Amino acid sequence: MPKIKVEKKSRVHNEVVKQGILFNKDFGQHILKNPMIITNMVEKAAVLSSDTILEIGPGTGNLTMKLLEKAKKVVACEVDPRLVGELQKRVCGTPFQTKLEIKVGDAMKSELPFFNVCVSNVPYQISSPLVFKLLLHRPFFRCAVLMFQREFAMRLVAKPGDKLYCRLSVNTQLLARVDLLMKVGKNNFRPPPKVESNVVRIEPRNPPPPINFKEWDGLTRMLFVRKNKTLSSIFRQAPILANLEKNYRINASLNNQTLPPEFDMKLKIEEIIEREKISDYRSRTMDVDDFIKVLHIFNTEGVHFA
C-alpha cells in the first residue's frame, strides 16, 4: 500500500509572504503602498529642507524615500532587523544614504532623538503610548502627521458629547491641536489590515497649559470611569472619598495644618461642589477648560488627586 504524503502546515505565525518579505502582523506590519497617500502625508507635514524627520516603523521604506527627497535628515526607528536590511538596500549607493539614520529597536523603550517633524504609518498597537511619548518629548517638535486605525483617530478628535469622547480625547486635546486629514481604505496596505485608517495632524501646544499633570491624570482617570454620572454622584462614592481624605490629610500634615476632630471629607466635598455650581457636570460633556476649572477649584481647597 503506497504511503500518503501529508504536507505539514507552515509554522509562520501571523505572517504573510509578499515579494519575498514575511510581514509580521504582531509588529503591526501593514506596509503603505499607495504613492498618492504617501505624497499627501509628506505635503501635509510641510517638510522643510532643513528639517530632521522622525519616522516610527518605516517598513520597506516607501514613505522614507519620499521624506528623504524633502528633508535634511530622516531618523527611522525599526524594530524588525529584516526590514532594516530592506531599507538599507534601498538607499545604498544613492545620495540618500548619508541622509538616513536607522535606529534598530523598540522606539517605545528608548528616548526619542531630536526631530522637527514626525511622519509615520504607525504600528497600531503602539498608537496611544506613542502619541503621549511624542507630546511629552522635549524640545517641542513642529507637528506630527500620523496614520492610525480609524476609531483611534476619531477618539483623538472627539468633542464633548460625542459617543467616542473619552480620556484619550481630553488628554490629547489638552496638549495638542489635532486635525483629521484624510481617510485611508484597507486596500492601500500590503497586507490589508482588518480596519480602515485615518491620517491625523498633531500640533503640540507650546507652551503647554500650566497645570500639574499628575493631578490632572488623577482627576480625569477618576471621572471617566463613570463618564455619564454627575460629579456630585461620583464624589459621593466611599472609595473615592477615602482616597481624597487620605490625600487631604497628607497635604495638611506637609503644611503643618491640624485638622479638627470633627472633620468630614464628604461634607467638605459637597460644600465645594454646591458653592461652585458644578454638581451637574458630567465628564462626557466637559471640555478641556471645564476639567481645568474643576481641578483648580479642588486644588485651591487642598483637595488633591495624586
Rank of each mutant, 00 (worst) to 15 (best):
M1A: 08
M1Q: 13
K3V: 11
K5R: 14
H13G: 11
G20V: 04
I21Q: 02
L22D: 04
K25N: 03
G28K: 03
L32P: 02
P35I: 01
P35D: 03
I38E: 03
I38G: 00
K44M: 10
A45S: 03
S49H: 11
G59D: 05
T60E: 09
N62D: 00
M65L: 13
K66Y: 13
L67E: 02
L68I: 07
E69R: 10
K72R: 11
C77R: 04
E78Q: 00
V79H: 03
D80C: 03
L83M: 05
V84T: 06
E86R: 07
L87S: 01
V91M: 07
V91L: 04
G93D: 01
T98K: 15
K103W: 12
G105S: 02
D106K: 05
M108G: 11
L112M: 04
L112E: 01
P113R: 00
F114I: 05
N116Q: 15
C118D: 03
V119G: 03
F132P: 02
F132N: 01
F132K: 06
L135G: 05
L135S: 05
L136P: 00
L146G: 06
L146Y: 05
V157T: 14
Y165F: 10
Q173W: 06
L174H: 06
A176Y: 08
V178S: 02
V178L: 06
D179N: 14
L180R: 10
M182V: 02
P191M: 10
P192Q: 03
P192N: 01
P192I: 01
P193G: 11
K194T: 08
R205H: 15
N206R: 08
P209V: 01
I211E: 05
K214W: 05
M222A: 12
V225E: 12
T230G: 14
S232P: 14
A238R: 14
P239Q: 07
I240F: 08
A242F: 04
K246D: 13
Y248E: 06
I250S: 14
I272C: 09
S279F: 13
S279E: 13
Y281D: 12
R282S: 12
D287K: 10
K293I: 03
E301G: 09
E301V: 11
G302V: 09
H304W: 13
A306D: 11
